[in-house]
Amino acid sequence: MKGIVFAEFLDLVENKFGLEMVDKIINQSNLKSQGAYTSVGTYDFSEMLQLLQNLSNNTGVSTDNLLLTYGEHFFDVLKQNYGAMLSSYKDPISLLSSVESHIHVEVKKIYPNAELPTFEVLEKSKSKLIMIYKSSRAMYNFGLGLMHKTFEYFNASAEIVLEKIKEDGTEVKFLITKN
């Protein structure tokens, strides 16, 4: 997993819960990196899972909600670094439906080793989009956070319903209806 994800995550934890919480979850976790993350590095995903779990244990907030919040935060990171790409879209539905075919393709160019989820578009209309999320990471809530922020970015809102196709969350159907 790219270092930026870890770095941004720890920044978010520091902002919301303080440096002590950061220190706490790092100490509670058994991390190969010792919690020293650089954006340009690449780290094991299990470290993220430990950090998330320990944060949830310490704060009482569910990992799902943590991921959702993190996704919302991460959109701002993307907006700062890749604003040009976002502005090439005129509406959220077309942006979301192009995640697989356009955005992830560009990501792969910069980070050939990146392990990305897939978003298969089942149905698409002007105001409706149905996609299936597939990833061994089961970080669909991270994706949901990104989606919320996407609609917000275009000054729009949407009702997004999740249906787990697989219980472990590695395959989830997103039913997005633009308001």
Binding site: L19, E20, V22, D23, I26, N27, S33, Q34, A36, V40
Partner: peptide, 27 residues
């Protein structure tokens, strides 16, 4: 405790910087 926390954070930052430098050198 606070100092220890900060020291650890500093340690991590250094480690991270070294790591980044190493990566950069490699790159």
């Amino acid at each position: 405790n606070k100092i220890e926390i900060l020291e650890r954070a500093l340690m991590r930052e250094r480690a991270a910087r070294k790591e980044a430098e190493k990566i950069l050198e490699q790159k």
